[in-house]
Design a protein around this nucleic acid. Structure first.
Length: 264
DNA sequence: AAAAGAAGCAACCGCTCTTTG
DNA sequence: TCAAAGAGCGGTTGCTTCTTT
């Protein structure tokens, strides 16, 4: 596809918006809506590209935008959603009405990331765990329980989320009522008592495990450990993309039953 | 009081995804 | 089925403000 010429080449304005421009854009959208962003600036009489108008509206002018500092509750939600989804800011923003993806992204980079590095959450996610070795492989590898694993764990979550991008049709952010539901606080013993045998790709643990059912998409919901194992076998034999299943492997929750992962 | 550096934030860029003809 | 156009997303930039020296 041919890229549209940039704003400057088209003689369009860039940079900060003036109050006058804001007023024009707001008035136009209130009157006519924003069906076609590309056509909007011309129709509204703005010397801006449609993209710039869209961004200004979404991030600043929308009437339902919540201004001001983030509450501690909002920050907690961002941290937890980021643990789960990685840098999928729009998905995180969907859980925070009135907040934009851009705003959340800024807050993350300026405040929360630093705070997280010093928090016990960082310790929690840096523990050895199952991780996809790459986006095209269904093999599992382990994060080495070394200091380097501690410093890379957050990006590991991001790369993990990359691998789950195409699950959007299965998992909607609004389905996730509370991250605590699927990722309850995990204590030290949770990690220390679980090991992974990579030769047979079988998860062995002195604890017992089960999969979070209630938030899984229908095809990954199970009535029992047996049905999960059966589904795992079916899945193992298919040629489908494995991201979905891997994702639900990744949110095992400590419980009363034990399961065995299928061979890959 | 001034300069330098750090932090915060709005906006842009370039890519991918979705829709349409 | 394919290509073009539009929309949306995440990464990055650069300006402004705040803090420190």
């Amino acid at each position: 596809m041919v890229r549209a010429p940039c704003c400057e080449k088209m003689g369009l304005k860039k940079g900060p918006w003036t109050p006058e421009e804001d007023q024009i854009l707001m008035s136009y959208i209130q009157k006519h809506g924003h069906g076609n962003w590309r056509a909007l600036p011309k129709l509204a009489g703005l010397l801006r590209c449609g993209k710039s108008c869209r961004l200004r509206w979404i991030n600043y002018l929308r009437p339902d935008i919540k201004r001001g500092n983030f509450s501690s509750e909002e920050e907690e939600i961002i941290i937890k959603m980021h643990e789960l989804l990685g840098n999928r800011w729009s998905a995180i923003a969907a859980k925070l009405p009135g907040r934009t993806d851009n705003e959340i992204k800024n807050v993350w980079h300026t405040h929360l990331k630093k705070r997280l590095l010093n928090s016990d959450i960082q310790k929690r996610v840096s523990k050895p765990r199952i991780k996809r070795s790459d986006s095209n492989s269904s093999t599992l590898t382990q994060l080495e329980p070394t200091s380097s694993a501690c410093t890379t764990s957050l990006s590991d979550f991001s790369s993990f989320s990359e691998g789950t991008k195409n699950m959007d049709n299965m998992i909607k952010s609004e389905d996730i009522e509370s991250v605590e539901t699927i990722m309850p606080p995990i204590d030290e013993s949770f990690w220390s008592e679980a090991t992974v045998d990579y030769e047979s790709s079988t998860m062995m643990t002195s604890n017992s495990w089960t999969i979070s059912n209630e938030l899984a998409p229908p095809q990954y919901q199970f009535n029992s450990v047996e049905s999960f194992q059966q589904q795992s076998v079916d899945y193992n034999g298919s040629n489908d993309d494995h991201d979905g299943m891997d994702f639900w492997y990744d949110i095992f929750i400590k419980s009363g039953e034990s399961i065995e992962l299928p061979e890959f």
